[in-house]
Structure formats: structure tokens, C-alpha cells
Amino acid sequence: MSDASAHALEHHEPVTSTGIPNKKVLMWAFLGSDCMFFGTLISTHLIYRKISATVGGNFLDIRDVFDIELTSFSTFILLASSLFMALGVSAIHKGNLKSMRWMLFGTIIFGAIFLACQVYEFTHFIHAPGNELTLSTYRGEPHVFGSTFYVLTGTHGTHVAIGVFWLIGWLAYSFTGKMSVAHAIDIEICGLYWHFVDIVWIIIFPVIYLMEYAL
């Protein structure tokens, strides 16, 4: 047997068969899976939107409760956050920690603004006078719109929140003095995740919000 052993002095990620780092393959596989999560939620929403288009005998006009200006603003903020994210990734690749910190900070702030908008939106919708949209009712009548809408956008919001906490984690880590260009891959997969969550919103926004105005 191999008795002699020593503690690791040098570590290096083994060369992979494809040349792509393992973490990146993992993230891509996860994102493929996540597509199916959102696919299921979005189709649930659209199916019910079509087959339960009335409430209490009247055509369900959700424009009474949506606040499209606010959502357009938060959409813009989320899109902009992706720019910060991309710049952050590029900064760490160049070993520029300081710039990376600012970029991550920007991403976090914009992500947080998006989340704040969503919290505001949810509370606003639930209490919209005369147009209350709750998890199970619309204007006091039982309906599925609230169920599908909140669970779908809530799941997306949860993704953003996880992304924000993840980035806060890296931002904090960057002050420990242990962070180097070696961690570029970690920031890069954060970035993949962040852009993906952003792209999902680019689908949700027109399909769930804008379409209501296209009628």
C-alpha cells in the first residue's frame, strides 16, 4: 500500500477531456435543467391564461392591476445589471480585483432594486383597491391568474435573490485577500447564472406582461 503521503503542496485542476472547466459544464447542465423549470411554469401560466380568460363572467383585464411603467423600469434595471456582471467577469480575468468589486457591487445593487420593485409590485397587486389580485382570487372571485402569476414571477425572483446572495458572498470573499485570477472561473459561472436569469425575464416580461397590452 501507499503509506507515504503528504499534504497537498501544489494543486491544479486536472486537464479536462473537453478543455472546459468542470464547473462550467456543471453550470450549463444546471441551466439546461432550469429551462425546463421555467418552461413548465410559463406554460402553466399561458395555458390557464387561455382557458380561464374570464372572471365572474367578465373578461379578465389584468391591465387594471398591472403597473407596466414600474415593470418596464425594473426590466431595464435587470438588463443593465447584466452589463455590470459581464464587466465584472472581464475584470477578474484581467486580475483587476478593484474593478471587479465595483462591478459586482453594481450588479448586486441593480439586482436588489429589481427585487425591491417586485416586492412593491406584489404588495401593490394584492392590495390594489377594487382589483385585488391574490394567490387565489381576483376581485374577490376565485381565479387561477394570481396562482400562476405569483408562483412564476416569485420563482424568478427567488433566482435573482439567490444570485444576489451568491455575488455578495464573492464580494465579501474578495476582501479576504485570498482572491486571485484563479477564481475567474467562479465569477464566470456566477455570470452565466446571472445572464440566464436575465434571459428568462426577457421571456417573462413580454409573454406575461406585454402580451396583456397587445389585445
Binding site: 499534504h7 497537498a8 494543486h11 491544479h12 485542476e13 486537464v15 479536462t16 478543455g19 472546459i20 472547466p21 464547473k23 480575468h93 484581467k94 486580475g95 485570498k178 486571485s180 485570477v181 484563479a182 475567474a184 472561473i185 464566470e188
Partner: peptide, 13 residues
């Protein structure tokens, strides 16, 4: 191919 900049070094033990 893995470029130089993304070669991963595990945090030292």
C-alpha cells in the same frame, strides 16, 4: 483549451 487566465488553483490547504 483552458486559457491561462482561468486555470483554477484550489485555495491552499
Amino acid at each position: 483549451m483552458a486559457t491561462e487566465s482561468i486555470k483554477y488553483l484550489a485555495p491552499d490547504t
